[in-house]
Structure formats: structure tokens, C-alpha cells
Design a protein around this nucleic acid. Structure first.
Lengths: 167, 167
DNA sequence: CATGATTATTTGACATGTCTATATAGGTTT
DNA sequence: AAACCTATATAGACATGTCAAATAATCATG
């Protein structure tokens, strides 16, 4: 049961292309006005750690699409700023598990709040019927995000990795 | 498109906070998946140039929240890659107007297409009713983006203050 | 038309992000 | 236990992004 989403017939292909374009424009807009206080890779890493829990360095590297040494230094920087920490991996003494600290979790949440506040302000400026249509689309928006995350995670959870789940 | 927004009474404040959160999650998700081939500042600059036309360097600087020399070198890089060009400003011989080249416009559009395709694929995986709700929210999504752009165009520097140090 | 303000560039410095290649410590296999 | 494999770290290199300060060109004005 990989997809509890598709109980109903899926929409016709390419039906959502205008919606997709609007959503992408929104993404570009938000990115353009969010504070650029940390790098994209850092932000992505923090989000990932918050969402999917402690991760191996190699896993982060493939996930982020960068080389492993890059992640090592990235993690060192995060650690130095108190946002993340290295933990021993109980199942493999070579590896480390990178985890958010409390401050890191706070940081991610604050940042999300900044973005959300920004959007709230805009949404509150909408006429009532448009705001309503947006609220009605909430399950769809959440489903899109969930779908993407599930796809991105590919392999379910690997906190219990046995050292044989490479590629 | 600019005036159809405020005909009806605005929705109650803070009503859209859950929607805002979902939208922000979507932003973070998309950003995490998009290719990181150019810097955030470059991407923002290109978007801005495409949307608002040729811009003065100082204007770009305040708009992006960076110092002027940074924009000079940024523009030089864009120029070197053939994505943008400097034009003389007819009204002021000191200034230049930074404009997209044809290749730059193509680049922006291609990049947007990548993002939109990505989203189309996800949207097409939604059950029909959710896809429908999303389509119904299209005007609202477009209005949000339009609102943000209008606001951004109106006020200078809406990100972080220019003299502010960031660490 | 001379002085002061502005616009952009140059210069010099520093931190970051990224890579490849190599080293080290720990696992796995025969 | 020797040999091989794997996970992370270190080293060295390079491009980028950023700034502040100084320079050059042009504009605006008294």
C-alpha cells in the first residue's frame, strides 16, 4: 500500500500545468523575498533533518546532490553554530548520525514561521472567495508536499540501516 | 489583473495560517528539489529582470538587499555567461540598465519550466477531487503572487535591511 | 562653472561552497 | 588474521558571494 492517495482516479495528465506554473511563480516569489541568512544547502539540510530525523553523512550527500566531503564541512559548520550535532551510530562505529539540536529545530521552525507569516499577510489581502478557494485546496497542497517527500525519500526510513541498502 | 483583487471584502485576519504553512512547506520542498546550478541571488536577479524589465544597478542592489559592488560583479558574471547585458541609460550617462539577453530570457523560462514540470507530475498524482480544488484555487494563487509583486515593486528593500550584518 | 552629490567600477579582503585525491578508522569476508 | 570494502575526515585547490573603501565619470545646482 504505497499509495493511499490514489483511491480515486487520478486527474487527466497535464491538466494541472497552469496551476503548476502559478505554484512555481509563488515559489520563486517567496524565495526572492525570504531572508538569505544561510545557504540553500544549509537550509535544505536543516529541513531534511527536521523532517526525516538523523541522517548519515553519505545519505545527506546523495540526497543533496553534493560530494561527501562537502557535507562533512557543512555539518561541521552547522555543528559550530549549534544547529546540528554528530551522534555516534550505534550500529556502525565508522558512521555518524547528524541530528538537529534543540536550537536547530527552533531555527527551522522560526524560519518556517517567517515564511508563513509572510504568506498569511498576502492571503489575508485576498477577497473572501479566493481565500476560501485556497482553504478548500489545503488538502491538495498538503498531499502534493507529502507526495514529493515520499518520492524523495524513496527508501522509507534508514535509521535502522544494516549496511546493505546502498543502491 | 491588478484591480480585480480588492473588489470584495478581505477575509478575516489569520484565517489563512494553515494554508500559509502548507504553501511554505511546498516552497521549501520545491527549493530542495530544484537544481542548484546558479546562486540564489543570480536566480532572483534573473527573475526580477524578466518580470520587471531592465533595472539600474543601484535599484537591483536595494532590491536584492546586497551592496552595490556585489551587484556589479554579479552583473559582470551574468554578462560573461551571456544571460544579461549592460545598456546605456538614455536618461543618465552615469548609470547602466541591466537587461536580460535572449539567452537569459530563455534560461529563466527553461528553469521555470523545470519547476512547473516537476509540480505537474505531482499534481497529476492527486485524486481528482483534490486536483479540482487546486484548479479552483488558481485565481487565488495568481492573486497572491501578483499582490506580493505589487508590494515588492512599491516599496524599496523589503527583505533585510541593507546595512544589517548577517552571519 | 565650480562644488557637491550620484552611479558605477575597481581594489583588496574574507568567508563559503564545492570538488578531487588521500588518509584513517572501522567493518566484512575468506 | 589478512585483505578488502566502507564511512568519514583532512588537505589542497578553485570559483563565488559578499563587503568596505577608494576612484572615475557624470549630473545637478548655487
Amino acid at each position: 500500500m504505497l499509495d493511499g492517495v490514489s483511491d480515486q482516479p487520478p486527474a487527466e495528465p497535464a491538466e494541472g500545468s497552469d496551476v503548476a506554473l502559478a505554484l512555481y511563480s509563488l515559489v520563486a516569489m517567496v524565495v526572492g523575498i525570504m531572508p538569505r541568512d544561510i545557504s540553500l544547502t544549509m537550509a535544505t539540510t536543516l529541513n531534511l533533518l527536521e523532517r526525516a530525523g538523523p541522517q548519515r553523512i553519505t545519505h545527506l550527500a546523495t540526497r543533496l546532490g553534493v560530494a561527501q566531503p562537502s557535507v562533512t564541512s557543512l555539518v561541521s559548520k552547522l555543528e559550530h553554530e549549534g544547529l546540528a550535532e554528530r551522534r555516534a551510530d550505534p550500529t556502525d562505529a565508522r558512521g555518524v548520525l547528524v541530528a538537529l539540536t534543540a536550537a536547530g529545530r527552533r531555527y527551522v521552525r522560526d524560519r518556517r514561521q517567517v515564511g508563513a507569516d509572510l504568506l498569511v499577510e498576502l492571503i489575508d489581502g485576498l477577497p473572501a472567495d479566493q481565500a476560501r478557494s485556497l482553504r478548500a485546496a489545503l488538502p491538495a497542497l498538503e498531499a502534493v508536499v507529502a507526495l514529493a517527500h515520499r518520492r524523495a525519500d524513496g527508501t522509507d526510513r534508514l535509521t535502522t540501516s544494516v549496511g546493505e541498502a546502498q543502491r
